[in-house]
């Protein structure tokens, strides 16, 4: 059963088609990876699913209902949470307050939201920074804060946009571990990732975008040997990243 179904999704920017006729679905309780070279249209896909951008055409269904045309806050309320590739902490608030705002979507009372936010920070290893202004965090910490904010909204679908990039291996491992645990608890995850080791280790399905188009969808082992992917993407990547 799919939680998210995207059909013929297209998004044009002036003179450029960032996402072209993309269709895929994300099974409930799965971890799906969205990969592709820089500028492939991955983040744009997230923006469309999360409601930050409106599709030029195509449909998006979450839990059986269309989300096209809904503002981001309502999509969030329905159970979709996203992180930003370029982190966007609420700089003037403390770390705890950042996460509390997110928790307030579900917990209407401030004290309950505080308890929930503290639990999320605990889980991600950010608890000792709870009272620090978000502006004071290091980049890895900011990435963790992105995840914490998203998690605090108690999503059914979590969209992670390159959260491992720039993290130290121990931190990346921690997030990987948390994602696994969350999936075990029933959360569905769609993640954009360049770190192939991570993708191979945790994804059930991998979708490959190239120039806005979906060129492949398979399980990790199959993707790794798909000639088109190897040619247009992995090859490039191996060359570039060594």
């Amino acid at each position: 059963m799919s939680l998210l179904a995207v059909d013929s999704l297209t998004r044009r920017f002036a003179g450029l088609v960032a996402v072209k006729d993309v269709s895929f679905s994300v099974a409930s309780g799965s971890i799906t990876a969205l990969i592709g070279p820089n500028g492939a249209g991955k983040t744009t896909c997230f923006n469309l699913i999360a409601g930050a951008l409106a599709p030029s055409s195509g449909s998006i269904e979450f839990a059986g209902r269309s989300t096209v045309g809904l503002p981001p806050e309502q999509i969030c309320a329905r159970g979709v949470a996203r992180t930003f590739q370029i982190v966007r902490p609420l700089a003037g608030l403390t770390v705890l307050e950042n996460v509390m705002v997110a928790a307030l979507v579900r917990e209407r009372a401030v004290p309950a939201a505080r308890v929930r936010a503290q639990a999320v920070l605990e889980r991600l290893g950010l608890a000792r920074k709870a009272d620090a202004p978000a502006a004071d965090l290091t980049l890895p910490e900011r990435k963790l804060l992105e995840v914490a904010k998203a998690l605090a909204t108690r999503p059914r679908l979590l969209l992670l946009d390159e959260v491992m990039a720039g993290l130290r291996p121990t931190e990346a491992a921690r997030i990987t571990e948390v994602v696994r645990e969350l999936r075990a608890e029933g959360l569905t995850v769609l993640l954009i990732e360049h770190v192939m080791r991570v993708v191979m280790a945790i994804a059930d399905t991998v979708i490959v975008l190239h120039h806005g188009e979906k060129i492949a969808e398979a399980e990790p082992a199959a993707i790794a040997i798909d000639p088109r992917v190897v040619e247009c993407y992995l090859g490039n990547l191996r060359k570039r990243r060594g």
Partner: peptide, 25 residues
């Protein structure tokens, strides 16, 4: 000090980021 105040400050800091975490801006 209520929910409203938190959401206001979130909007003040970054309206789009706030909306992404459910703030009805």
């Amino acid at each position: 000090s209520s929910r409203i105040g938190y959401e206001w400050r979130a909007i003040r800091e970054d309206e789009d980021a706030a909306r992404a975490i459910g703030v009805r801006a």
